[in-house]
Nucleic acid binder design. Structure first.
Lengths: 202, 202, 202, 202
DNA sequence: GATGAATGAGCGTTCATTCAT
DNA sequence: CATGAATGAACGCTCATTCAT
């Protein structure tokens, strides 16, 4: 019996406390960093008792990591929206890059959380799979780059390098946007992603 | 009365304790993150008593920040080595990019430290100037990109975006190298930096 | 949401922890001085964990100062008991002096605490108002001396000097009693206070 | 061989370091209290190395206590100056009281030190002999009061109580002077001491 | 199930004391 | 002798976690 599942038929189920806690954790951590986010602060933000958190998450590590996974899910989900599966490779690439960039700048707390997460006690073991690590999203991107390689549309470089060339600038530019160094509009998003393509195309 | 300076020619003088402590802090923090780097652990790694650290650094924050500045100095210094000031712009750019990338992968602890630092309570105020922030190094890079803009050799994009395109992949690829996802050799370094140029050039 | 209040009539409620901590602090500090009264010692004496103290007092300074105020309140309260507001001035004076002296010797820990407090890092700012500083108690005493001055019953000396003459011996004798140099009985109390009056009266 | 004694015949003996250290300790402690007077601060004020202090005093406790004794000596010495040994008892008493009060207000650091000392880790065991405890000074005062008792000039009260009546106000008024609550001039000094006599005389 | 008061290990920091120079 | 760099025990305080209610 999973305590977190809402019983079907239970018409007065409050919005899950689990979700409330995750939301609160995201809010506090994005705003204050992992320091400044003691369990007590998260509990207060969530409007629950501190002890309650431990009914939904084994411990703080688990909470932090599950939040990480949720955020990654959200990002992945966005990438598939309106994906022009039948279009030319460059079109698909720029669609993907732009979708990713748009998500990162319209969900600054998600992005801030990810950045906080990776260099924290909690995220060390996830260091290796940054944004776009494993799972569908990665498959999508990797597939795309592999196709480019196979069809000799992109430079003959290791996949890892192509990944860096393709998405490194997107993440860097999203950070700059979040820090207020630049205001990205649709034009700049497109131009940036296009430039990424220029970097990897043959 | 500078207690920290080692007398030149005094061969019996142990390498300065200050340096020993900085080295130890770098080692511990790069390996364990800021968590897992209590003063006691740094002191042990340095082979000194905990109290000794406070003779050289006002407090932990200062130690952490001075180490940050030292590392940045080291990186900056490397960029100027053999810099072909008279060469064509693309040559200068690729020299710079390759020098940076080489430093990041040959000094993995420096790199890991920088990454840890920026998303930590200590580094919040430095968030904005990631690797290559202010100072000579940044001037060097910015000057180069500005020259490219003025001479219409690079895309007409905001400087911030050009920065992201030029150095985002380098940092991403350095991280992958450090994590063991790829073994960068001189050929790959050159190719990566060249691809960065492809991303920004007109 | 006052967590410290004990519900009246709730017989099962243990005496408030806050009071327990204050009691423990008084005990330890009166006995050992402020040195020898680390938080851990106070916590042990109170039978609580060290961290618990911080649920009731923001920090050690606050604990120490609140205890000071509580003790002062206790003393003040005693002065008004059976106060013969309508009696002659000398009667009122001796009532007051005797009440004070009785309190100081029957509550030796209160007295010892006050003495410790005033010459401690915590009490510096209260240095000026020793025992009988501000508030009702002081008003009571001052009013009495001022009345004496106005009615030419006491010497024409600055109020400060009259205070010293009136209460200096009382405090000195209380200390001697506490240190075991003398056993004050009701006769000696009366005689001492009478002698104080002799010192100030015209 | 006492390291502290200046060798007779050693014509270039610097003013004793021991005295320098005691002077420095008095200065720092009177100004900052015992907190804020770490050995390092005393050493700096004295212009010697921290380790040097341990050549003159076994440890900090000893330093603090020897300073206490020195100050008491100084005060005692002053009491005998111009002592009118042949005069009437009240004259001798007021001479003594006035001399004491004058010393306390003209040597505020001595007085502040004494006050700090008695309620400190170092002074606990001296608590009982306040100012005027043992030794000549006390003998002088006690003798005087005993004489008064024998000759039925002062009230028939225990010596301890007479002490409190005689000197309690003097110390209280000296404190007020030091704290700036009153400016004692020769007239007030005389009046205060006279009032003390009024308190004890039959 | 939900709570939040209680806990105590662990942190950063100070400072009396030692001892190699 | 004098020094002051080095030490580490001890402090005040935080916060993840538990558990009685």
């Amino acid at each position: 019996m999973n305590v977190h599942s809402a019983n079907i038929g239970d018409l007065v189920t409050a919005p899950g406390k689990r979700e409330e806690i995750l939301r609160a954790a995201l809010e506090v951590i994005a705003a204050q960093g992992f320091h400044g986010a003691p369990i007590a602060a998260i509990a207060e933000q969530a409007g629950v008792g501190a002890g309650t958190i431990y009914r939904y998450f084994e411990n703080k590590d688990v909470l932090i990591r599950e939040l990480f996974q949720e955020i990654r899910q959200r990002i992945c989900a966005g990438l598939w929206e309106d994906y022009p599966a039948e279009a030319e490779l460059p079109v698909r690439f720029t669609h993907l890059g732009a979708a990713l960039l748009r998500h990162l700048i319209s969900n600054p707390r998600d992005f801030q959380y990810l950045e906080q997460f990776h260099n924290s006690p909690y995220g060390v073991e996830f260091r290796r799979d940054r944004i776009l690590g494993k799972g569908e999203d990665s498959d999508l991107c990797r597939g795309l780059l592999e196709e480019g390689l196979a069809r000799q549309l992109v430079k003959e470089l290791p996949l890892v390098v192509l990944f860096a060339l393709a998405f490194g600038p997107i993440i860097a530019v999203a950070r700059d946007h979040n820090l207020g160094f630049i205001e990205l509009d649709e034009g700049l998003i497109k131009a940036t992603v296009q430039a990424c393509w220029d970097g990897i195309r043959k």
